[in-house]
Design a protein around this nucleic acid. Structure first.
Length: 406
DNA sequence: CTCCTCACG
DNA sequence: ACGTACGTGAGGAGA
């Protein structure tokens, strides 16, 4: 671990310091506009919920909401949990109920609006400095895998997955006369899986820069790539994520909303096709058992004490952790090395470009227009060339005035 | 302070 | 029989 410390985490520290000092500019007028829009919409959706439910209550209270949905309204409660809590009002449960009832659909809409308003729209302006910039703290020794974390505020979980949430990214802007540049690694964990496993199908696919989810769909479901629908590709995407997480029939079934037996059949098909991956997982588990730990490509170690547990549940957790950690942890090591190299190059070349954010597989920079061409080449070269693997590393880059449009 | 929920990769 | 997808941080409710 001395090598990990001296080659990665120690030299990263000054780069993180400069990123924290720089901060990123937010457009207060954009957030102010969103706050007013969201307030009106929350009012409208809330009143409609009260109307249909026949009573007024705090929609943000899971306790009160559970009483209204499952006792007062008599909706079926599919999930029974441990003692104390009778029902879950979590998203996946409400999504099932929403197929048949208006109220759970409206509750989901209310929750979405409420989450975005309180966590981002209304809180970020309170944390901005006199130049409207927000400065996160990157915790460098917080996670079990070697990732960074971001606190006060967390700038690693700014919304992007929904259109409504994405609007918030428009409030993250370049300083006057500057541009934002985002550069993210494409499928880095699956590329690392290909590297570690040397699975011929995976290695060949990445060598050709093929769509990996489409490939898995073809292999597992037997559908030709040409006639593939979105739904089939999405199921295969869930399978690929599952592999990286340390797959289980239960987890895959829950994610896809299918019976466990069906999920088990998908997994069996996957391992029949990707035998190198199957062998990689078996070898990784054997090492985890004999060492009671696993390591990243660069030697970063994570103890896995529960790998020998007689409790099957704890052991299952440990096994999935043992599979996931070398992938997630090596990806974390790689982007840290790229950050160290880029921080040094920017200083060496006396560029005005500043590195602002890291979001696990993405880096965000603030770039003066006259440096755009040089920085684009520099960032791509350093990220893709950080280490030579059995498959190519690819970074996707985009410029924009804000974090939504790039 | 804990629990539930949900935002991200 | 048990009961789980991997890694995080933050807000609101309620004790």
């Amino acid at each position: 671990m001395i090598r990990v410390y001296t080659k990665i985490d120690l030299p990263l520290a000054p780069a993180l310091y400069r990123m924290e000092q720089a901060g990123i500019r937010i457009d207060l007028a954009v957030l102010d506009g969103l706050s007013k829009r969201f307030a009106l919409e929350l009012e409208r959706v809330g009143e409609r919920i009260f109307e249909l439910a026949g009573r007024r209550f705090n929609v943000n209270s899971p306790k009160q909401l559970g009483e209204v949905l499952f006792t007062h309204m008599g909706l079926p409660a599919p999930m029974v949990r441990g003692k104390g809590k009778v029902v879950s009002t979590a998203q996946d449960i409400l999504e099932q109920l929403a197929e048949a009832h208006e109220v759970p659909r409206l509750v989901l809409e209310f929750r979405h609006l409420s989450k975005l308003k309180s966590t981002y729209i209304d809180s970020l302006p309170l944390q901005a400095d006199t130049e409207s910039r927000v400065h996160t703290t990157f915790q460098a020794a917080a996670t079990a895998t070697g990732r960074l974390s971001s606190v006060n505020p967390n700038l690693q979980n700014i919304p992007i997955r929904t259109e409504l949430g994405r609007e918030i990214r428009a409030a993250f802007v370049a300083a006057p006369g500057m541009q934002l540049l985002s550069a993210d690694y494409s499928q880095i964990e699956l590329r690392l899986l290909a590297h570690f496993s040397q699975d011929p199908l995976l290695v060949r696919a990445f060598a050709n820069n093929d769509d990996i989810h489409t490939l898995t769909a073809s292999e597992v479901f037997g559908v030709p790539a040409e006639s593939m629908d979105k739904e089939t590709r999405n199921r295969a995407k869930a399978v690929n994520f599952g592999i990286v997480y340390g797959i289980s029939p239960f987890g895959l079934a829950a994610q896809l909303g299918i019976p466990q037996a069906e999920a088990r059949a998908y997994i069996d098909r996957y391992f029949a096709r990707y035998q190198g991956v199957k062998e990689f997982i078996e070898k990784t588990l054997e090492t985890a058992r004999s060492e009671a730990s696993v390591r990243t490509l660069f030697g970063r170690m994570r103890p896995i004490p529960d790998i020998q547990s007689r409790n099957p549940n704890q052991r299952g957790f440990a096994e999935r952790t043992a599979i996931n950690t070398p992938l997630q942890g090596t990806a974390a090591d790689l982007i840290k090395l790229a950050m160290i190299a880029l921080d040094r190059k920017l200083a060496e070349k006396k560029l005005k470009t500043r590195m602002l954010l890291q979001v696990h597989d993405e880096l965000v920079f603030e770039v003066p227009p006259e440096e755009a061409a040089e920085v684009e080449t520099l960032v791509r070269t350093e990220m893709e060339g950080v280490v030579a693997l059995r498959v190519p590393l690819i970074a996707d880059l985009g410029f924009g005035q804000n974090w939504r449009d790039l």
